[in-house]
Amino acid sequence: MHACCANRRHEAALSLGPAELRAEAQGVSAHLPGLILSAERLSHMVAPGAHGLRRAGPGEDFWQYRPAERGEAARNIDWRRSARSDGEFVRDREAQSAQTLSLWVSGGQGMRYSGDPERVTKVQRAQVLALALGMIALRGGEKVGLLGQPARAGRRQVERLAQAISASVAAETDGDAPLPDVLRPNQRLVIISDFLTDPSWVQALLARAGSIGLRGVLLQVLDPDEEEFPFSGAVEFRSLSGTMRHDSRDAAGLREAYLLRLAERRDWLLKHAQGAGWHFGQHRTDHSAAVALGWLYQVLGG
């Protein structure tokens, strides 16, 4: 049994299973407004005033006043601002260049895990983070979409994006992977997963991304139990897909080896991400979602 999967217990909480998630995503579901509301609140905590690219150029939003240069055209002078001083000033606007943000959230069965019924599952946290980040990008004038689906700009895309995230079909296996063939140039890509199953797909994805100049972020989302391995005594470990199981008489005796394997997996992900010019980050579901979103916003150039 893969050591990185050993902490998934049969008793894991399975809120919003595949069939339920698909049913609720059809039409105007009960889940959808809650997802949008949670993501909206989170996005405003991190970036209440999202903006475009921070440089002067054609755009609608004020950026800065600067002293007029010699030979500056009269139409560029802000005469009201200049009247308050001895010099002449130009009112620069901020350049806004529509970019494309593509999001991918793992639908592997392992993402449905929670070690505590009072704690959100990994996929619930990942979905809220993805939608909140999409909202920030949309407010900044970018086009946003799920990887492999049309990316659009504007307020209406928020609901489309929420519906697409909610309607994502869960994989039958513990892990899944995006297809490298759907990557396109001029995108920024955010991949959210637990990265606990075979990670060879990450190499293929980053190789394809590098060949077309695509940059992005890998964010690993884990449950606290997957971080700490708090098990002891006789424990039956079983993957949520039911394909793997392991009976242990002394679960505590597995902790050191498990934590070592987890550290090795993270080092591997960091090495490959940095080698491709990407970022790699970590988040656990009992920590602040705002901190994780703020990090994503920062590394993507917010």
Rank of each mutant, 00 (worst) to 15 (best):
R119G: 05
A153W: 02
M1Q: 09
G49K: 04
S29N: 08
G253D: 13
P185N: 05
P67G: 05
V291I: 09
R238L: 08
A6M: 15
G301H: 10
A290P: 00
R55E: 15
L133W: 07
V291F: 08
G277T: 01
A289T: 06
L42Y: 07
E236N: 10
E72G: 00
G294L: 11
G148M: 09
E227L: 10
G277N: 07
L254V: 04
G253A: 11
L179Y: 03
G175N: 12
P199Y: 04
S85E: 14
Q157R: 12
F280R: 00
E88Q: 15
S82P: 08
I192W: 03
S114Q: 09
D116V: 00
A151F: 00
R265V: 04
L146Y: 05
D225S: 12
R84D: 05
G52D: 15
R261G: 03
R208C: 02
A13W: 10
Q109N: 04
Q220V: 01
S97D: 11
D86R: 15
L262R: 14
D78I: 05
M1R: 06
F237D: 06
R266M: 02
R266I: 02
D247N: 13
S166N: 15
R54L: 13
M135S: 04
D267T: 10
A74Y: 10
D86E: 14
A207Y: 05
A50M: 06
P185L: 06
D247C: 03
A56L: 03
Q96S: 09
G154N: 02
W268H: 03
L196M: 11
S15Y: 13
A130I: 07
F280V: 05
P185S: 05
R156Y: 00
I165W: 08
W104Y: 12
R54I: 11
H31L: 15
D78S: 04
A30V: 11
M111Q: 13
Q96I: 03
P18R: 14
L147A: 04
R215Y: 07
M1V: 14
G302N: 11
H279V: 01
R125D: 14
E24M: 03
G108H: 06
K143V: 01
R265C: 00
D250S: 07
L218C: 10
A207C: 04
F229S: 04
P48Y: 09
E236Y: 05
D223S: 02
A98M: 13
A162N: 09
W295F: 10
G302C: 05
A167E: 15
H272P: 03
R125A: 15
P18C: 10
V158Q: 12
G175K: 05
A73K: 10
S106M: 09
G242M: 09
L103S: 06
R84V: 05
M1E: 15
G17A: 14
F280I: 02
L189E: 08
V90D: 10
S15L: 13
D176R: 03
W201D: 08
G210L: 10
L37Y: 11
H10W: 11
V182D: 03
L206K: 00
V221T: 14
G27P: 03
